[in-house]
């Protein structure tokens, strides 16, 4: 690992992190402020009038408690998709971007192993992922304490966020693997983004009705079981571990593939 390279990448990408954190802040604080046990009833009525749409965005049950409300409205879609986009952009730039531009030649023309370089990039991506998830957690906790003191079930909400991190480690692993395998940024980003969007769409479709219920077996997003995590269900925790396992395996696979392959530099 190279600390110099780590610092340089952080300096090159902190604006991206900031922009996404800002958008998350906007949505996060808005949704928290919308919580109102009474509003839940009117939302439930709206959900009844257009059940498919609400189901697609994982918002069927507005939830009686603040914790359930957040799990449905933020952790069902917004906090899944927003950091995912940021991760996709960053991952494509970290490895494939350098190979595509040719600047990888400068990184490798230094006394570091390829593994050292590529694991540094992986560390940048993971730190970024951790940061966004920690921000999501910190933001919601702070906003909830400020607006509805004592309403948030901190213990289970924390577990939900560990779950969110697992999901993003999975997305990060996938994007990182693609970035290590392909020589062109467009190809790496395209394939990773295509798969991630497909997974999200499959999940949305699977929630619409019983007809497509089986589709939930076709998307890794099912492994991030918000209801199960809030209930502290051991099955949900097990599925979460699978998500972490897949994610970290793809990180490793990417690093190994990159260390072994020919580079067009």
């Amino acid at each position: 690992m190279s600390l110099t390279l780590f610092r340089r990448e952080v300096r090159a990408h902190w604006v991206l992190a900031l922009v996404f954190a800002a958008v998350m802040t906007l949505y996060g604080s808005m949704i928290v402020s919308m919580f109102d046990p009474k509003l839940g009833e009117s939302l439930a009525m709206m959900a009844e009038s257009m059940p498919q749409i609400f189901a697609a965005f994982n918002m069927t049950d507005p939830g009686a408690t603040l914790t359930e409300f957040l799990a449905n409205y933020l952790y069902g879609f917004l906090f899944v998709v927003l950091p995912m986009v940021a991760i996709l952009i960053l991952a494509a730039g970290l490895v494939a971007g350098h190979v595509d531009k040719g600047s990888m030649a400068y990184l490798l023309a230094s006394p570091h192993t390829r593994a050292g370089i590529v694991w540094t990039q992986a560390a940048v991506l993971f730190s970024f992922t951790l940061l966004l998830c920690a921000w999501a957690f910190g933001l919601c906790t702070a906003a909830a304490q400020l607006m509805f003191p004592g309403e948030l079930d901190l213990e289970h909400f924390a577990l939900l966020n560990v779950g969110l991190l697992g999901l993003h480690v999975f997305f990060g692993g996938l994007a990182f693997l693609c970035s290590c395998l392909f020589n062109e940024t467009r190809l790496a980003a395209g394939i990773a983004a295509g798969l991630c969007v497909l997974f999200v769409l499959i999940q949305m479709l699977s929630q619409v009705g019983d007809t497509f219920d089986w589709l939930r077996l076709c998307t890794p997003l099912t492994l991030f079981d918000t209801d199960g995590l809030l209930a502290g269900d051991s099955g949900a925790i097990g599925r979460l571990l699978i998500l972490y396992g897949w994610g970290s395996s793809m990180y490793c696979l990417g690093a190994v593939a990159f260390s072994r392959r020919d580079l067009p530099l």
Partner: peptide, 29 residues
Amino acid sequence: QEKVGYLPGELSLAGNMTGDGFLRFVASM
């Protein structure tokens, strides 16, 4: 690489860095 200084045929330097910043980065690497 500890022994080698390489000049690529096709240069591609980090575009958004200043000349000085890039040289310091390479020296540090």
